[in-house]
Amino acid sequence: MLEAYEGWNARKRMMLFLVSSSFFLILILILSFWLSNDNLRLSAARNLPPSLNHWFGTDWLGRDMFTRTIKGLRLSLAVGAFTSVISVLIATVLGICAATFGKAVDAVISWIIDLFIGMPHLVFMVLICFIAGGGIYGIVLGISLTHWTALARVVRSEVLQAKNAEYIQISKSYGKSAWYIARKHIMPSIFPQIMIGFLLMFPHVILHEAALTFLGFGLSPQTPAIGIILSEAMGHISTGKWWLVVFPGLLLVVVIKSFDSIGEQIRILLEPASSNE
């Protein structure tokens, strides 16, 4: 009885943490649309420390850092969502193909996965982004082509396990087509893994987008992106303008941690057996 009560309380805490993290991210998106672009215009209020009028202070051009940070996070979230979807699609297609098209295809795809995993992650992203010409296109291509490998292995394993399930063998004995089995049986069984993989991939994508932009391989300097904000602030932090780095960097970490926690909590909630052990 006591164990059941503790398990229920732990589940309630996970749900509360999940809702609070989701609310925080939704609040960031609402604020990014609500805040006026007029706060990004040049003004005489330059290098002001944090105050009630400017929560995150202002930069060397008089732009409100709170507005720049929130709108930069919106861009990071948009790029992260689009890039994560592409990575999930690549992982799902290759994982299913590896598990269903025989040993030869499985060996080739497994070799490609090992090749991508074996290469230095950030160097590979920078190389792809540089070849693609930088910008949003280069970031999306560079990150999406390097973040699918772990999920592809999970999908492959899940499909191999599902193929040997009794209900699929019964479906085959009734003459159901491979497309029917994939659509009605295999896809529903791997969908939770795909969703969890997407949510856990999201924070890594956002962090790497900021890293590529910080290194100068990403978005243009005119774009209000977190990587650009941090990169520009590095030239002013030595003069005592600490707020140019601390607040954007701290908020980026909180957003990444929120997404990571959402994915982890959903994974635990979808696997009650493992969470009770």
Rank of each mutant, 00 (worst) to 15 (best):
M1Q: 08
G7Q: 09
W8R: 13
N9C: 06
R11N: 01
L18V: 04
S20H: 04
S36D: 14
N47H: 11
L48F: 13
G57T: 09
G57F: 08
M65H: 01
I70Y: 04
L75G: 15
S76R: 07
S76H: 10
L77D: 11
V79G: 11
V79C: 09
V88L: 15
V93N: 05
I96V: 12
I96L: 11
C97G: 02
K103C: 04
S110W: 03
M119Q: 03
P120F: 02
H121E: 07
V123T: 06
M125S: 04
L127R: 01
I136M: 07
I136D: 01
G138E: 04
G142C: 01
I143T: 02
L145P: 02
W148F: 08
L151P: 09
R153V: 00
S157V: 02
S157H: 05
Q161S: 12
A162C: 07
K163W: 05
E166Y: 06
Y167K: 03
S171H: 07
S173L: 15
G175I: 09
S177C: 05
A178N: 15
Y180L: 10
A182I: 13
I186E: 12
F191Q: 06
Q193R: 03
I194Q: 04
L207F: 00
A210G: 04
T213N: 06
G216W: 08
I229P: 03
E232M: 15
G235C: 08
I237R: 06
S238P: 07
G240Q: 14
K241E: 14
L244F: 10
F247N: 13
G249V: 08
G249F: 12
V254P: 09
V255F: 10
S258Y: 07
F259W: 14
G263P: 09
I266H: 06
A273R: 14
S274A: 09
